[in-house]
Design a protein around this nucleic acid. Structure first.
Lengths: 345, 345
DNA sequence: CAATTCTTTGAAAGCGCTTTGGACGCGGCG
DNA sequence: CGCCGCGTCCAAAGCGCTTTCAAAGAATTG
C-alpha cells in the first residue's frame, strides 16, 4: 500500500492525503479523519526512502563504533549506550544505523555516510587525546556529537562526557582520607581521552596532599579482568612497599583485582581498599542496596539517552550553539573500602 | 556532487555515467575509465535513498534487539555479535540498522520496518521456546534469520545456532567422568530457547548414567555475577550433600561462582569443579594459553559474521532453501576442573 | 556496396513521496 | 453587484537515481 493507492482508494489526490497525514492545516478536519482512519486501516506507512528523497532528510542517525585492529575489543559499555540512545531515537521516529569501523577507515566512512546521505547526524565514540576525526567531521558539515572529549582539539564541537577528572579526584581523596598513601592506579589505555583525565584526577589529588605519584603504582592497559588480576597480584606480592588501595577504571578490572586480593587471603575493604568506576551496565550490576565496590558511578545508558537527545536537537536546529554536557559521577560507598589497616599503628 | 552534475561535467548522459559506475557492459572501456576517474576525483557517491527508490532495494539489514521491560538487560553478547555481523555487512556494501525494541512492540516494529522499506532483511535475536515473532516474520515475507532457534515452532525458517544440547551434554559427561555426581546447574532464564536446550543436555547426560536430576541443584535466572555468587554460596554452605561441581551458562556467572568458592576457602579445580559456556567475548577473555575456566566455547563474533553472510545470501536469492547452521561448541579444558576430591576415598 | 548486426550513447519514464503554484467555490465587503 | 480573501483541494514538478526503449554510428557480412 502506497500513497498513490491509498489516495485513489479515498478518491483524493496524493497531495491531500500527504497533507492530512503530515498534519498540515490546509485540509478539512473531516477529510483528515477519513484519511487517518483509512491509513491505519490499511496499515499504510510512507516509504522512508521516497520520503527522504523528497524532504532531503534521512530520519536516521549513525553511530560509528571503533574496532581497532591491534586490540580487537568491542567496548563493553557500547551495548548499554546504544540501548539508551536507541530509546530516544525510536521515540522520535529516527532510525539508528551502526557502523563498526577500523580506526584507519573512519575518515572514509564519515565521508561516505555524508555523501550517500544515509544519515542526518552521527555520534562519534571513543575519542583519543588528539583525535583528528573531530576535525574531519567539522569539515564535513554533518551534525555530530562526541561521546567523550578530545583534550587537544581546539574549537567548538558538541560533546557529552563524564567528569572523569573530578570523579577520580574524589575517589583518590576518599582513599587518602581513609589513610591510604600507596594507591595503585589501574587505568585504561592512556591514548583514550577519558583515561588521561582520570589520571589527572588521580595525580592531582595526590599532589594536593604533597604525595608524589609513583610510576610503579600506575598501569595503563586495556580493561580486562586478567589485567586487574595479574597487575594486582604482581603488585601485592612484590617486595617492598605494596599498595594498600586500588583505584581502577572499570568493573571488569575491579573483578580481577578482587580475585587477586582474595586469592592472597586478603579481604577487600579491610586489608585492601578498592574503588572502581562503574558504568552501571545492565549485565554487570554493582550489587544491590549496598554496592560491592565503592565506585564512581555514571550510567552509560543514561548517557546514551541524553547524547541522542542532544544530537537530535542539533539536527533540528543546526544554527544553535553546539550543545555540551558534563555529567558528574558521584562516589557511592560500597564494601570495598575501609581505613588503612595500619592507620592507627 | 550528484549524478546530474557529474554527467554534465563529463559531457555524458546520466545513463552512461550510471552504467559505467555500476559495471554494465554496454559502455566502452575508454569512457568507463574517464567516468570512474572523475567520480572518485569528485568523491561521488550515489545517494542511497535515490538508488534505493529506483532499485527497490534498501541495501540495509536490520537487527532487532529485545529489551524486556521486566529485566531491562541488554545481553552482553550483543556487542560482539553485532561487531561480527557488521564486518560482513560493510564488506558487502550493506548498512546495519539497529532497533532496540521492547518485547510487546516487536510485531509492530517488524511490520513497520517492512512497510517503510527501511531494510531488505533482518536478524532476530533472543528466541524464546515458543516465539510468535517467527510466525509474524514468516507472514511478512521479509527475509530473516534467527540467532538461535525456537523449539516449539514448526515449519521452516533460517537460523544459526550453537549446539547447546551437545555442548552441555559433553560438559556434564566430563564432570561425570571426573567422578562428580552432584553437579549444580546454573542455567539462564528457561523461557529462552537456548537455556532449555542446555538443560536437556545436562539432564540427558545425567540420565544416561542413571542419575536422577535433583531440582535442588538447578537454578534458572538472568545471568549475572551475583546470581553465580549467591547461588554457589548458598549451595555450598547448605547442610547435606553439597555439590562438588558447577555447570554454568556464562562467564559472568562463572566469575560469581568462583568468588563464592574462593571466599569459602575452597580451590577451583581441586575442591570444586566448574565448567561454563564461553561466548569468547572480546572483553571477557577466558585466560590465555591455558584457560581459567574449563568451558564450552563458541565465538559469538564468528556467529555474527556467519549469520550476516547467511542472511545476505538469502536476500540475494529468496527462492533458495532456508539456510540453517548448527555450530558446535567444543569443550576446552582449563584449570577449573579436576577429579572429585573424594574420588578415591 | 548495400544490408545487417554490434557497439555505444541518450531521452525519458518511473520509483513514492513532498511541495509549489494554481483552481474552484463560497461568504463577506465595499 | 463585483471583488477579494479564505478554505479546500489538485496537477504537476522535483528529489537522485536506474532502466527501458530508441537512435546513431561503426563494424561486419554476403
Amino acid at each position: 500500500m502506497n500513497l498513490k493507492e491509498l489516495s485513489q482508494h479515498l478518491g483524493l489526490s496524493q497531495t491531500t492525503v500527504s497533507r492530512a497525514l503530515n498534519g498540515y492545516p490546509e485540509v478539512s478536519e473531516a477529510t483528515r479523519q477519513r484519511v487517518t482512519v483509512a491509513a491505519d486501516l490499511h496499515n499504510y506507512r510512507p516509504n522512508t526512502r521516497a520520503k527522504g528523497l523528497a524532504t532531503g532528510r534521512a530520519m536516521a542517525v549513525g553511530h560509528v563504533i571503533p574496532t581497532s585492529t591491534r586490540h580487537e575489543m568491542v567496548n563493553p559499555i557500547f551495548g548499554d549506550f546504544i540501548s539508551g540512545a536507541g530509546e530516544t531515537y525510536a521515540a522520535n521516529g529516527y532510525d539508528m544505523v551502526l557502523s563498526m569501523v577500523e580506526d584507519r577507515d573512519q575518515p572514509r566512512v564519515y565521508r561516505e555516510l555524508k555523501a550517500k546521505g544515509t544519515i542526518d547526524g552521527l555520534i562519534m565514540h571513543g575519542p583519543a587525546v588528539d583525535d583528528d576525526r573531530i576535525k574531519i567531521l567539522r569539515d564535513l558539515g554533518l551534525p555530530f556529537l562526541v561521546h567523550g572529549r578530545s583534550s587537544k582539539i581546539v574549537g567548538d564541537y558538541s560533546w557529552l562526557d563524564v567528569n572523569n577528572a573530578s570523579a577520580f579526584r574524589a575517589a583518590t581523596n576518599l582513599l587518602l582520607d581513609l589513610g591510604h598513601r600507596r594507591i595503585a592506579f589501574l587505568n585504561g589505555l592512556e591514548m583514550m581521552d577519558f583515561a588521561t583525565r582520570r589520571r589527572r584526577g588521580y595525580e592531582g589529588a595526590l599532589a594536593a596532599r604533597g604525595i608524589a605519584s609513583d610510576s610503579a603504582l600506575m598501569r595503563s592497559e586495556e580493561m580486562t579482568e586478567s589485567y586487574g588480576y595479574d597487575t594486582a597480584r604482581a603488585m601485592l606480592t612484590a617486595r617492598g612497599d605494596v599498595p594498600s588501595a586500588f583505584l581502577v577504571s572499570s568493573m571488569i578490572v575491579a573483578m580481577g583485582v578482587r580475585r587477586a586480593v582474595e586469592e592472597l587471603g586478603l579481604t577487600l575493604g579491610r586489608d585492601i581498599s578498592l574503588i572502581t568506576h562503574d558504568d552501571d551496565l545492565s549485565y554487570l550490576r554493582n550489587g544491590g542496596e549496598v554496592p560491592l565496590f565503592t565506585a564512581t558511578r555514571s550510567s552509560v545508558r543514561d548517557a546514551g539517552r541524553l547524547a541522542a537527545r542532544m544530537l537530535l536537537d542539533q539536527i533540528k536546529d543546526p544554527g544553535a550553539p553546539m550543545p555540551t554536557k558534563l555529567l558528574e559521577a558521584p562516589l557511592i560507598i560500597g564494601r570495598s573500602t575501609g581505613p588503612h589497616p595500619r592507620a592507627n599503628a
